[in-house]
Amino acid sequence: MTAVDLGVPDVQAIRSDEDVVRVRQLVRTTAVAAKLSLVDQTKLVTAASELARNTLIYGGGGTAEVTSVEDGRRRGVRIVFADDGPGIADLDQAFTDGFTTGGGLGLGLSGARRLVDDFDIWTTVGEGTRITVTKWSR
């Protein structure tokens, strides 16, 4: 079953620290509306927080597009993080636990991938990065 969008996406710009907080709040609201369990809401909001921070710090800012989706059996929430930053040169390295170029813990990408059901990344050096994640209700 392919995923079908339910309604138009909510778009939140990521330009500052406070925007990362706004992304978390938007994702939480959408996850509650999609009837995700409390643990799944928590995992998705945490993943969104990591990825929004990456968009800000490494991508130099961008957007988060939050959409309620369904695949016929279950509902879910899809988030697309997009930036026009430098891109990621070595994806394998970027997904290694503990690897960081930004002074963080190096858990952002790898940790976020573990917390969601679907994870897709497109990145090109010099053009930017797009990360799409989806969390489904059980």
Binding site: V39, T42, G111
Partner: peptide, 14 residues
């Protein structure tokens, strides 16, 4: 710490 937060932290790898 809330239970859901504890579960998420462990999965995140913290």
């Amino acid at each position: 710490m809330r239970p859901a937060v504890a579960i998420t932290l462990v999965e995140l790898g913290l």
